[in-house]
Amino acid sequence: MTIFEICLLTSAGFLAGVINAIAGGGSFLTFPALVFAGVPAIPANATSAVAVFPGYLSGALGFLDELRVYPRRHLSALLGLSVLGGVLGSLLLLVTPATVFSAVVPWLLGFATLVFAVGKRISNWAERRSQTTGNLGTLSTLIVCIYGGYFNGGLGIILLALLSTLGVRDLNVMNGLKNAMSFILSAASVVTFALAGIIYWPQALLMMVSATVGGYCGALLARRLSARVIRSIVICVGVAMTIVFTFRTI
């Protein structure tokens, strides 16, 4: 890595940690930074997943009390589907031709940005829906987890909406489940990517360290800076990256 690439990845990782601690959406920085640092699109997506996934564990541990009282059978089912979806999504990424994935990236970024921007409306809509049960609920959960294993942009908002349709109403329980499912499916994806040998480990470890520091600073900053401001910044970054990657494919 060059000095410029080290500075770019360190800065992106740090800012992603800050953003994830306050509002979420750090992958809008880590993935593009890796691509601009010369990492091919598919390994960049896998490496980005490695860089951000430890933060999900700390988030889940923060809601451990809520997870302990959640019905064990339902929790096991959700986490089992998270593992299956994470593996299937990562395998789908591995068999996707590089040219196809590069062409799909702008659409994925645009979709994730849109989901992030209207996340509140999505959650409100989901709350008004009747509870989804049985096979439909299982299929919906699996599809969302496959998306998370393939490309996890906007995953948090989608999971919150999914949990609402599954009948979960307590916000703390929802956040605990969201973080636990995100960590499990990301861990499954990371293991799959590691076995496939497509992770750029020096870049991943560098961004993990800087993201951890950024997450700590973000927790302190959250007391002073409005989450609305951070969300606006994330949306602007998402739109900009969508435009940039669109022109890269032309």
Rank of each mutant, 00 (worst) to 15 (best):
G80M: 03
L9G: 06
T99R: 05
R121D: 05
F245W: 09
I250V: 15
L221H: 06
V237T: 07
I184F: 05
L29P: 03
L185T: 07
L155Q: 13
I143V: 12
G86R: 08
F245K: 12
S232I: 07
I243V: 15
I243L: 15
A41W: 01
I235F: 10
V213W: 07
F31T: 15
A37K: 00
A161G: 15
A117I: 08
T2P: 05
N152V: 08
C145G: 02
L155I: 13
Q203P: 01
G25S: 07
A112W: 01
V52T: 15
T141A: 10
F116H: 12
I184P: 00
G156V: 00
V35T: 14
T10K: 03
L57S: 12
F245Q: 13
A33K: 00
I233D: 15
G149M: 04
G80V: 01
S48H: 03
R169L: 04
N179C: 05
I22Y: 06
I6Q: 09
L8V: 07
T10E: 04
N45F: 08
R223A: 15
T249M: 14
T96C: 11
L221D: 12
R128C: 11
G89M: 12
F193S: 08
L177Q: 10
L155M: 14
R128D: 14
A204Y: 10
A77T: 14
R73K: 14
F36W: 14
G55V: 00
F101V: 11
V105N: 01
Y150M: 07
C236Y: 11
N45P: 14
G218K: 02
L109Q: 00
L163K: 02
V100K: 07
R248F: 09
G119T: 08
G55D: 06
T96L: 03
V244A: 14
A51D: 13
F151M: 00
V83K: 08
V87K: 06
I198R: 03
L29D: 03
L34G: 03
G197A: 07
V213S: 12
E127V: 02
T2N: 10
I230S: 12
A49W: 02
S76N: 09
L67E: 12
I143T: 11
